[in-house]
Simulated assay, not measured.
Amino acid sequence: MKNSALRGTGTILSAALASLALMLAGCALDSPAPSPPPGSSAAPGSSEPTLSASSTPAAAVHFTAQADIGVRKESRQVLDTIADLRPQFNLALGDFSYRAGIEDRFCDMVKEKLGSDFPYELLTGNHESDRSDGDIAKFVQCLPNRLPGIQGDYGTQWYVDVPQQDPLVRFVMVSPGIDFQNEQHLDFSSGSERWNWTANAIDGARTANIPWTVVGMHAPCLSVGQYDCKVGQDFASMLLAKKVDLVLTGHDHIYQRTHQLGTGPACPALVPDAVVPGCITDPDATMVKGAGTVFTTVGVGGESFYDVNDNDPEAGYFATWSGGNKNPAFGTLDVTVTADKLSARFVPAKDYTFTDAFTIAR
């Protein structure tokens, strides 16, 4: 059993440049929004944000994602890898500085590598949610949201449609299963306000005819690493039942990707610590949209490695994995989405060789 352990001429010129940036990046669909999450406020830094220049075609969304980052040589190597890939934005899925009091140092490292205005979008991990190794509120101040149209509480529970006009993807970022202050968890139990907010955000994407839905959260449910299903079986099963296309996590300092999984007559719910063959809807790397969900953990942003267990009771759900004792590699997931295809690949940082790639097509 495993351990339980995000002014004149000058004013006119600035406005023109901002408008041009928004046109290039794509601008949020005025679809019905779920109610704000409990305790939420206006997202800091969300006023008139723009996306950085990218080589991505206008009809595509290009982003990177990883977690468990740190302030190390390896952390900088991963940031260099992201810079070389030139995504439109990056999803940082929690666990940033691994030390309290150096939030500004972490933010300066990111800005130095990616640019001061690059959309480095945050979702809290356990190390800053409970303020033991940093404070998510301070990270949010020095790395504010830069994606237009964000809804919710940036850093903890938010969603955004990209591009803002005629969106291709809705990103729903939530924080189940991790400790906040005083060892309290946010309530994502079935029927709770946060559960309903998440479900409504996912359903809203379908109602608005947004082709793809990606959910990000720090903790995984399935893993061949150290952790059990911290987000809860019911929550993970809900993501499957709603046919979320891709779920991105960190927390376990490994890379791992499941087969495409889905609920149905042969799989009423996702079962951790065991494998139900009927939950596997597609076992190869070329998948069909709507058949299920792919869970990908990218906890290799630079901090350290955990070992993987080839004999883990959940191993049968996974297509591939990498950890400290097997093909270790720091790096990032690199994802490009068009109206018809989601293409993802793991890109290792300098000096590492492990790779992975998969597609989901309409």
Rank of each mutant, 00 (worst) to 15 (best):
M109K: 08
G299M: 00
H62I: 04
V215R: 15
A100I: 02
G278P: 10
G264L: 05
A339E: 14
A65S: 04
T336C: 04
E121Y: 06
V275T: 15
A349G: 03
A83L: 00
A266P: 03
S175E: 07
L222R: 15
R99Q: 14
N196C: 02
V162I: 14
T320D: 05
N311W: 05
R105S: 08
Q181W: 04
V337Q: 00
G149P: 03
I178H: 10
A21H: 09
I150C: 00
N200F: 13
V247L: 01
L333K: 13
L239G: 02
A361P: 01
V174N: 14
N327F: 11
F305W: 10
A357G: 09
V275I: 05
R257E: 09
S304I: 08
L147E: 02
R257L: 08
A21E: 04
D312A: 11
S41C: 01
S41R: 15
A291H: 03
V224F: 06
R194N: 10
P87T: 09
Q157I: 11
V294Y: 08
R362H: 14
V169Q: 07
V224L: 06
A65D: 00
V231A: 00
F354A: 15
A83R: 15
H259L: 11
L143Q: 12
A266S: 14
D351V: 11
D161M: 03
Q260D: 03
T56L: 02
M23E: 00
H185C: 00
A67W: 11
V215K: 15
D153Q: 12
Q77S: 15
M173C: 11
E314M: 03
S97I: 02
E193K: 13
G155N: 04
N200A: 13
A361T: 14
D334N: 05
A349M: 06
A315P: 02
I254L: 05
A201Y: 12
D273S: 12
T258L: 09
P44V: 05
D130I: 07
V160F: 09
A5D: 01
L122F: 12
S19A: 15
K289C: 09
S116R: 15
G149I: 00
L342F: 09
N126T: 07
T11I: 14
L240P: 02
A285Y: 05
L240S: 03
P313T: 07
A28C: 00
N3K: 10
L93H: 02
K243S: 03
A16K: 12
N309I: 09
E303K: 12
S343I: 04
L20S: 07
G204A: 10
S132P: 02
E193F: 15
P176M: 13
V347R: 14
D307L: 03
G191V: 01
G316N: 04
S47Q: 11
R7H: 08
M217H: 14
K341C: 00
V300E: 01
V298I: 13
D245E: 04
K243M: 05
D310F: 05
D351L: 04
I254T: 07
G264F: 06
P176S: 10
R131Y: 12
